[in-house]
Each structure stands twice: as structure tokens, then as C-alpha cells.
């Protein structure tokens, strides 16, 4: 049988899914054990007891200086910035993207501009943001928006343009005005794509968030990682990275579930 025609059974699928994760953890455990055997005080690859210690200290014991539970206060600070940034980007992208996709005049006006803006490296703008908006929350949220919104606008504009012309014409023969067609035909078909678009931008959004927090902040997951780097505290950095990853994976999963629950037809289309 050809390789392209062999398919794993359900059990095999589950095993294959878990395999890379197990291998990664096993490889780390082996590396950590080897280094700790050579030097019991090695800080580069702490063992799982070290991680448990660090997690316990950060998540369940108050910080001696501030009295905060650091993991949770960092998470709250970071998520607030992340969702504020993503929220602003989402609304902007929806409004501007749909308008570009539907109206030829706005398309002529904005498409090249957005294409150029989306090529500006956002991190290069970070110093300007800090100078103009100060070191507070605004500059960090602005960085996420600048980094994420242009791509989302382009994606949604393309998606609105991709709607078959037949559908728009059909809606016109049903008496729809531009506004009504936007509201009843384009918007509902763009929303599932918007959710997918947010999911794809989660990675870049976290990147910009951590970059901003690393440079100037007094709380946040990125801030903590870059703070404890000075003490080679790998026992803190690794759990924080795992936690950020988990948060991103969860957000991704929840957003997709929302799409399926609210727009059941979008899932039917995929299967069809």
C-alpha cells in the first residue's frame, strides 16, 4: 500500500499525538539528570523537584516584598494588556477590513497604505511608542495593535473580497442596500474568519507583549522572565514559558469552540 493511503487507527492517533511531548520531557529529564550528576548546584537544567519548588513559591506563597502571589499578578497584568491589544485590533480590523473589502473607493484609498504599514517592523517602532506614550500600559497595548492589526485588516479585506460576486448580486436582487448587505450577508460570513484570524495572531501578539514587557515594565509574565534571567533562574523561566504556552493554547482552543458554537454553518462548510 502507498504511504499516502495508510492511516493510523484511533489508538495509534492518540499515541502519535502524545509521542513528541513525551519525548521532549524525557529528553529534558535525561539532560537534567546528567548535568545534576556532574554538579548538584547546576542552574541551567533544574530537575522537576526544582520546578515544583519554584511554582509553589510563585503561585501559592505571597512575595515577601510586595505580598502578591507573583504568578497570578503577572498573569493578570499580561492578559489584560494582551486582550486589550487584541480587542482593539479585532474591532479595527473588522471595521476597516470589511469596508476595504466591500467599497471600491476605500479599497483604492487604503489597500496600498495598509500593505506598506503592515511591513513596518513593529519592534523598531517600540522606542517611538515609549517616547510618545510613556512607559505605561498604553505603549505596550499600542505595540500589540500596531503589530497585529494591519495583518488582520488585510486578511479580512481579502476574505470579504473572496465572497462570491454571485452572493452580493443575489442580495442586491433581494433589495439589499450597501448597509443591509454589509449587515446581513458580509458581516456574518466574515465573523468566523475573524475568530480564526485572531487565533492565528495569538502568537505574534504574545511576541510583542513579551518584548514590550521585557524592556519596560514592573509586572507581567515577560517582565518576570527577563528579571530572573539575571540570576540564571531557569527553574522560574521554564515554568513561565510553559504557562504562557498553555494560556495561548487554551485561548486558541476556546476561540475555535466559540466559532463552532456560534456559527455552526462555518463548520458544515469546512466538512462539505
Amino acid at each position: 500500500m502507498r504511504w499516502i493511503n495508510t492511516k493510523p487507527t484511533r489508538g495509534a492517533q492518540l499515541a502519535l499525538m502524545l509521542l513528541p511531548f513525551v519525548l521532549l520531557i524525557a529528553a529534558y529529564a535525561a539532560g537534567s539528570a546528567a548535568r545534576l550528576a556532574g554538579n548538584a548546584n547546576d542552574k541551567l537544567l533544574p530537575n522537576f523537584v526544582g520546578f515544583a519548588d519554584a511554582i509553589n513559591r510563585l503561585a501559592f506563597l505571597p512575595d515577601v516584598r510586595t505580598g502578591d502571589y507573583l504568578l497570578w499578578s503577572d498573569t493578570a497584568a499580561s492578559l489584560m494588556r494582551l486582550f486589550a491589544g487584541l480587542g482593539i485590533s479585532t474591532v479595527t480590523a473588522l471595521l476597516v477590513g470589511m469596508a476595504i473589502g466591500m467599497l471600491p473607493y476605500l479599497r483604492a484609498l487604503l489597500t496600498p497604505f495598509v500593505a506598506v504599514i503592515s511591513m513596518v517592523p513593529p519592534l523598531a517602532l517600540l522606542p517611538i511608542l515609549f517616547i510618545v506614550m510613556g512607559l505605561g500600559e498604553a505603549s505596550k497595548i499600542a505595540l500589540i495593535v500596531i503589530g497585529v492589526a494591519p495583518t488582520m485588516i488585510r486578511d479580512l479585506a481579502l476574505k470579504a473580497l473572496e465572497l462570491p460576486r454571485e452572493q452580493i448580486v443575489k442580495a442586491e436582487t433581494l433589495g439589499g442596500s450597501s448597509w443591509q448587505i454589509a449587515l446581513r450577508v458580509v458581516l456574518p460570513q466574515i465573523l468566523p474568519r475573524l475568530i480564526t484570524c485572531v487565533r492565528l495572531q495569538l502568537g505574534p501578539a504574545w511576541l510583542f507583549l513579551i518584548a514590550a514587557e521585557a524592556i519596560s515594565s514592573d509586572s507581567g509574565l515577560g517582565y518576570r522572565i527577563f528579571l530572573v534571567r539575571r540570576y540564571l533562574s531557569m527553574d522560574v523561566i521554564f515554568p513561565y514559558v510553559a504557562w504562557i504556552t498553555l494560556l495561548a493554547v487554551l485561548t486558541n482552543f476556546i476561540l475555535d469552540q466559540i466559532r463552532i458554537a456560534v456559527f455552526p454553518w462555518s463548520q458544515l462548510e469546512k466538512q462539505g
Partner: peptide, 20 residues
């Protein structure tokens, strides 16, 4: 100069709205 409700249309494909 524009499609209007006085002229209905059925295309070979994409005539109905997938989200309704």
C-alpha cells in the same frame, strides 16, 4: 444600472447564503 428586486436571479453556484 444596478441589480434590483424587479429582476430575480439564480446562478449555477453560490446563489444561496451559506450562513442562513
Amino acid at each position: 444600472a444596478e441589480p434590483r428586486p424587479d429582476r430575480g436571479v439564480v446562478f449555477q453556484r453560490y446563489s444561496v447564503f451559506p450562513h442562513l
